[in-house]
C-alpha cells in the first residue's frame, strides 16, 4: 500500500509540476529538436516509414483507424484529399491500422478498393499506439508540426470538422488559408 501511494504521489507531483510549467512559460526549445519517440514500420506495399526521417522537417499526421471502425472509414476520404493537396508541400500522412490478427486481412483490400494513396502501416505490436495513442482508441489523430512537436490531437471524427482540419494543416505548413 505504501509503495502504491508513493508511486501515485510521484506521478501526481510530476503531472502537477508539468501542468504548472505549461502556464509559466515552458521553454520552446530549438526547432527540429523533437523529443517525440521515433519508430520505423513497414508499409502495406513493403516499403519503410521512419518517423525520424520526417520529424523537424515535415508536418506529420498519424491517423489511427481499424477495419471495424465505421467513423474511421468515413474519415479516410478527407485524409486522401489532404494528401492529394498538401503532400507536395510537406504533409506526410501515416494511416496506422490498429487491427489485430483477427481483422488485419481486411486492411489492404479496404485501402486498395478505395484507391487511397497515403502510407498505411499495421501496428500489430501496438508499438506506435503505445507511444502516441496509449488509450488505443480509433479514430484518433496526432498532428505533428514542422518543429517536431505535437500540435494537435483529435479523438473521434466529425465530418463537419474537415474544413477546420484543413485550416490546421495549412497553418502548420505555413500556407495561406
Amino acid at each position: 500500500m505504501r509503495r502504491a501511494l508513493t508511486i501515485l504521489t510521484a506521478v501526481a507531483v510530476a503531472v502537477a509540476v508539468a501542468a504548472c510549467g505549461t502556464t509559466s512559460g515552458a521553454t520552446g526549445g530549438e526547432p527540429g529538436a523533437s523529443t517525440l519517440p521515433r519508430f520505423t514500420a513497414t508499409t502495406l506495399d513493403g516499403g519503410t516509414f521512419a518517423l525520424g526521417d520526417h520529424l523537424g522537417k515535415d508536418v506529420v499526421m498519424l491517423s489511427f483507424w481499424a477495419t471495424y471502425c465505421e467513423p474511421c472509414k468515413a474519415e479516410m476520404p478527407v485524409l486522401e484529399q489532404l494528401h492529394a493537396k498538401y503532400a507536395a508541400q510537406g504533409l506526410q500522412i501515416l494511416s496506422v491500422s490498429l487491427d489485430g490478427a483477427d481483422t488485419v486481412s481486411g486492411v489492404r483490400p479496404h485501402i486498395k478498393k478505395n484507391g487511397y494513396t497515403f502510407d498505411v502501416v499495421v501496428d500489430d505490436d501496438g508499438t506506435i499506439a503505445q507511444a502516441y495513442n496509449p488509450a488505443g482508441v480509433a479514430p484518433f489523430m496526432v498532428l505533428i508540426g514542422k518543429d517536431g512537436r505535437i500540435a494537435k490531437r483529435i479523438e473521434g471524427f466529425q465530418a463537419s470538422e474537415a474544413a477546420s482540419l484543413e485550416r490546421e494543416v495549412q497553418a502548420l505548413l505555413g500556407l495561406p488559408e
Binding site: A12, A16, A18, T22, T27, G29, R149, A151, R153
Partner: peptide, 29 residues
C-alpha cells in the same frame, strides 16, 4: 487526486519543459 489532475487542464497537445538543460515532453491521458 487522479481525477483532479486529469480535469486540471486540457491543452490538447503534449507539454514541453526543461530540467537542467534537458528538453522533456510530457503526455498525459
Amino acid at each position: 487526486a487522479a481525477l483532479l489532475v486529469g480535469l486540471g487542464s486540457g491543452a490538447g497537445a503534449s507539454i514541453p519543459f526543461e530540467v537542467g538543460g534537458v528538453q522533456l515532453t510530457l503526455d498525459v491521458t
